[in-house]
Computed example of a mutant assay.
Amino acid sequence: MSEDFMAHLRDLASDFGALSARRMFGGSGVYHDGLMIGLIEDEVLYLKTDDLTRARFAAAGSAAFVYTRQRKPIELSYWSVPESAMDSPQEMRPWLALAFEAALRKANAAPAKAGSAKTGSAKVGAVKSATAKSKRRPDRR
């Protein structure tokens, strides 16, 4: 990912809030308030989806991020952003909001790991910590 591309994404997110990126595998993860809401591969932004948001991305002509593992295609829950959103902060904002909401739902639905010292906190705490801009470990999927 080029610095110019990330600078463009930050400009597009000006109506939404701060974005950061971290290198992962062959691309980069995109984070907002400590949650991974997207990924960048070959200068294409893919945003987090779930069962509640995937149809909106599909209706807008977006496509799922797919990679090949052991010669089999693996579809992730990240979908490309409609082309019009890459031109305007006003067009991008609703897509970023959908991705953040999907990431919050996933964080709150994730089961606690057995034997972990951190399992005592309620899932509600994940929403509070994400919205309070605390630093959390990103979703590693």
Results as ranks from 00 to 15, higher is better:
E75V: 07
R137M: 11
D87Y: 03
L45M: 08
L39Q: 06
A63I: 13
R23P: 06
A97H: 03
D11N: 04
A117N: 10
H8F: 01
L19A: 03
P94Y: 03
A58F: 12
S134E: 08
E83A: 12
A107N: 02
F16G: 00
R22W: 02
Y67Q: 15
E83R: 05
R137C: 01
A64D: 11
Q70D: 15
F25W: 14
A109Q: 08
A107S: 13
P73R: 09
Q90F: 13
N108A: 06
N108F: 04
D11W: 14
S2T: 15
V127I: 12
F5N: 00
R69S: 14
S129K: 11
K113E: 11
S129E: 13
K106T: 10
A102I: 01
A21N: 05
M92Y: 01
M1A: 10
S121C: 13
K133M: 08
G115T: 05
S62M: 10
L104D: 00
M86A: 04
S134N: 05
D11E: 08
K106S: 09
A112K: 12
D139I: 08
E75D: 03
K106Q: 06
A122Q: 10
D87R: 15
A58Y: 12
P82V: 03
K113G: 07
G125P: 00
L19H: 01
T68V: 15
F16N: 01
L76Y: 05
K106Y: 06
A85I: 02
A110P: 01
R54A: 11
I74R: 07
D15R: 10
Q90L: 13
P138M: 08
V44D: 03
I74A: 03
Y31K: 04
R140A: 15
S80P: 06
D33T: 11
K106W: 06
A117S: 14
F57E: 01
Y78A: 01
D15L: 13
T49W: 00
P73M: 12
A64R: 14
F25K: 10
R23F: 06
P138V: 10
A59H: 12
R23E: 12
S116Y: 06
A55V: 11
K72N: 09
Q90R: 14
A126Q: 12
E91V: 02
M86Y: 01
L47H: 01
R22A: 14
W95F: 00
D42M: 05
E91K: 13
M92T: 00
A21Q: 04
V81Q: 00
S88E: 03
A13V: 01
I40V: 15
D33K: 13
M1I: 11
E43G: 03
L19N: 03
L47E: 01
K133E: 08
D87F: 07
R56L: 15
A63P: 02
D15E: 09
K118D: 12
E41R: 11
K72S: 09
D51R: 10
Q90C: 09
K72D: 05
A122R: 09
S62K: 11
Y67I: 09
E3F: 05
T131Y: 04
S20A: 05
I74N: 04
K48E: 08
P73H: 06
E43Q: 10
I37A: 04
A107R: 11
G34H: 07
D42C: 01
S77E: 12
M24S: 13
P138F: 07
W79S: 02
A109D: 11
R140M: 15
S20F: 01
S116D: 12
A99R: 04
K133F: 10
G29V: 12
V81I: 07
G125D: 10
R136T: 12
R141W: 12
D87S: 15
